[in-house]
Design a protein around this nucleic acid. Structure first.
Lengths: 135, 135
DNA sequence: CTAATTGTAACTAACACAATTACAGTTTCG
DNA sequence: CGAAACTGTAATTGTGTTAGTTACAATTAG
């Protein structure tokens, strides 16, 4: 299993949308069943993407910046996805082989298109829809 | 970067389709720039999926079972994809939190749909198309 | 001032994966 | 037959990624 960050981020965002209030990293960590620092690291990425805002100091925490209906899963994906999901080999090509020489370019296109297809699907799913599935 | 197996498999299949002949794991390894054992492991998966056939013994190697026009990148993806691309947390839910309790089911659906969207895109791309990009 | 909270660095532990070595089994061909 | 050239496969290693954890400075509420 690789990179749970997307799953964590979806969970965090759903919890924030469901509660509608400020939640601190400890509450979120209990819900996700992980460590508050892990939650805060993800919140930083979500904040950088303009999805949540954070209050520091006592009684601090985070809340959504926008209504859940205006947030798609692609927004969340883009906020936390560090690496493309399909990796392209960066090895040196073998000069005597045409396949080897052209592979990187071809594979990059394949990986790009595949990821775009997935992101385009995620764009159609709103956070609101997930919240409705809780109730 | 995670799981280069898909990239390796695409490279191997493209090389086999391009040459049209039997290639042994050492030739393929040179083209991919990796170790013959790594290639053989991927060939096992491709064989199990019915995409290639292997000849053992001297002058052995592998070749495609079907024409490149009859092989989609989804076939290759399914042959080597061990884990779903989006992982779902398998942690115990926190009973006092409704979001936590329903998250696994919701996230499983999200991951399934996203992967299906990607696979459905890959189905539309044939190996033949990649080979044409080499020439 | 004290308590609660975030931001962040530093380190550890676990895990995934490619690379590598080694060797038994199979086949070709002199 | 016997050597050479392959595959199949197990075992081990090295490396990189990631979540977990601890610690602490900075900030804020009361």
């Amino acid at each position: 299993m690789v990179n749970q960050q997307f799953a964590f981020a979806i969970h965090i965002m759903t919890a924030l949308a469901y509660s509608g209030e400020v939640m601190d990293s400890q509450m979120l960590a209990r819900s996700v069943n992980t460590n508050p620092v892990v939650v805060r690291r993800i919140l930083l990425a979500l904040r950088a993407a303009g999805l949540v805002e954070t209050i520091i100091g006592k009684h601090g925490g985070s809340r959504l910046c926008k209504p859940a209906s205006a947030i798609s899963l692609r927004d969340i994906y883009d906020a936390v996805a560090a690496q493309p999901i399909i990796s392209v080999s960066q090895r040196k090509a073998w000069r005597h082989c045409e396949v080897s020489c052209r592979m990187r370019k071809i594979m990059s296109a394949v990986a790009d298109e595949a990821e775009r297809a997935m992101r385009s699907h995620l764009k159609a799913v709103t956070l609101q829809r997930l919240v409705r599935q809780i109730r």
